[in-house]
Write a protein that binds this DNA or RNA. Structure first.
Length: 455
RNA sequence: CGGGCUAUGGCGCAGUCUGGUUAGCGCGUCCGUCUGGGGGACGGAAGGUCGCAGGUUCAAAUCCUGCUAGCCCGACCA
């Protein structure tokens, strides 16, 4: 993408309304624009990040054997009356009437809708296990939205629902989600710690929240420092292997880690040696629930088991805050100059900076680098504008692309360009072809993910 | 929803208390010249129903009333 043809409305000054780093930087980097309280437009740069996060979520869900679909944002109130949640949910749910006076709502979550679909079409134990998910806009009419996309009213979220014959099957689904979530966050460069949590309006007795440690987090968290050393990495996971999946869950949930809602100081002190006790703040980026027959009973979602008996489905639901993650990643990775995107979610992988736009030699060198990188499948933002060097560097630092390739007449005279890593600031002078080779090796066409047919 | 506050060009602000020339400043934008490796300099220009409605007054960004939107603290929350 050529910057001169792109839409990147960066702000030099800090918007007055933004209180925390991610909100400030998303506004300054031209990623979002507030439409009304807690509701944002995603401008091109922000949109690219959102879609990258979304893609990772899809890939890891599909890898875990979960099936993508799409449900609507608007739902009928009738379904919510069946589950009994129409009244329980309160003011947080946005209620709307259509022209016929029918009561509708902008969905804050989709348990009722998915249960309605499944009860209509799933009748036998032979149809199970089944986990369906979608990524869709949700709305919760927060009393006080704040912190940009971290706590908006409208938000983009992956929510998945498992339907199983037995409690044991459903708990395996729960574990499968936990492992796939850990992997999802790790791919984004984040460590999100599963913490025992309270269930809230979704209900259920088995639930974990995933928290990214950050000073600006809304939750108070208590944990054993040992948990921060755990990594799933790229170990092979067979999501059908109950023992393996359960063992990974045990590994990640054995060290003490709880939010203030479930924190128990006595247990904390008994289990964790003093030097490993940590108290911090965290941003919640996902939550998983097992809630058994909470919805299948009132809504009559049953199957016939192998003995011919009609039994209620065991269910759970599992969410990842996709739009919130964009903010959480920035909270975790920024410095005083701007964002430091992890490579997997960066809007572009490389920023190509032409230091002397209009100079025949520099222009030609940049055009060639740009064409070669594009051809190799590297995502490049080419700053071909007439700005001065300082302004270009400041913009690149602000939007936080992981690598910057700087091309100027001074370097070209010596036959080199400069490759700079945003995160460390480390620079290296290379021949242009070496730079292309280096970046191509790193970012060349990504290998196709299995069954990534949702695209 | 309680408490506090704000609304003036794309962004950040001054002006309001004490009504009175043409509503200013910085950034950004556009044109030109010089520049050219960390937000450069100079010259010129465009851009404003002063949140909305009503009222007071010879005169309202400024005073009064009502409304709307947004922000902060709290309670609440993926």
């Amino acid at each position: 993408m050529r910057l001169s043809r792109y839409f990147l409305p960066v702000l030099k000054e800090t918007p007055a309304d933004a209180q925390i780093a991610s909100h400030r930087l998303m506004l300054r980097a031209g990623m979002i624009r507030q439409a009304s309280a807690g509701i944002y437009s995603w401008l091109p740069l922000g949109f690219r990040v959102l879609k990258k996060i979304e893609r990772i979520v899809h890939e890891e869900q599909i890898r875990a054997g979960h099936i993508p679909m799409l449900m609507p944002t608007l739902q009928s109130a009738d379904l919510w009356r069946e589950s009994g949640r129409y009244d329980d949910y309160g003011e947080e749910m946005l209620r709307i009437k259509d022209r016929h006076g029918r009561e509708m709502l902008y969905g804050p979550t989709n348990e009722e809708l998915i249960t309605d679909i499944v009860r209509a079409h799933v009748t036998s134990y032979r149809d199970l296990p089944l986990t369906l998910y979608h990524i869709q806009w949700k709305f919760r009419d927060e009393i006080r939205p704040r912190f940009g996309v971290m706590r908006g009213r409208e938000f983009y979220m992956k929510d998945g629902y498992n339907f199983d014959l037995t409690r044991e099957d459903a708990l395996h689904a729960y574990n499968r989600h936990m492992v796939s979530y850990i992997r999802t966050y790790e791919r984004m460069g984040l460590q999100a710690i599963p913490m025992r949590a309270a269930s809230g309006p979704i209900g259920g007795d088995n639930t974990h929240e995933f928290l990214v440690l950050a000073d600006t987090g809304e939750s108070e968290v208590f944990y054993d420092a040992a948990i921060t050393d755990l990594r799933l990495g790229n170990r092979e996971v067979d999501y059908n292997d109950r023992e393996q999946v359960a063992a990974i869950c045990a590994e990640f949930t054995t060290p003490y880690a709880r939010t203030d809602e479930t924190h128990d100081p006595a247990v904390f002190e008994a289990e964790v040696p003093p030097e490993r006790r940590r108290q911090s703040r965290g941003i919640e980026v996902g939550q998983i629930f097992y809630f058994g027959t909470k919805y299948s009973e009132p809504m009559g979602a049953t199957v016939v088991n192998e003995k011919g008996e009609r039994v209620h489905l065991h269910m759970g639901s599992h969410g990842i805050g996709v739009s919130r993650l964009a903010g959480a990643i920035i909270e975790a990775f920024h410095d005083e100059r701007g964002i430091l995107w992890p490579e997997e979610v960066a809007p572009f992988q490389v920023g190509l900076v032409n230091l002397r736009q209009g100079d025949a030699g520099t222009d030609a060198a940049c055009e060639q680098l740009y064409a070669q990188l594009q051809a190799a499948g590297v995502e490049v933002l080419y700053d071909d504008t007439d700005e001065r060097a300082g302004a270009k560097f400041a913009t690149m630092d602000l939007i936080g692309l992981p690598w910057r390739l700087t091309v100027g007449p001074r370097g070209l005279k010596a036959g080199v360009v400069e490759l700079t890593e945003r995160r460390t600031g480390a620079s290296e002078e290379l021949k242009p072809q070496e730079a292309v080779a280096r970046l191509t090796a790193r970012f060349g066409p990504r290998r196709a993910e299995p069954d990534a047919a949702w695209l």
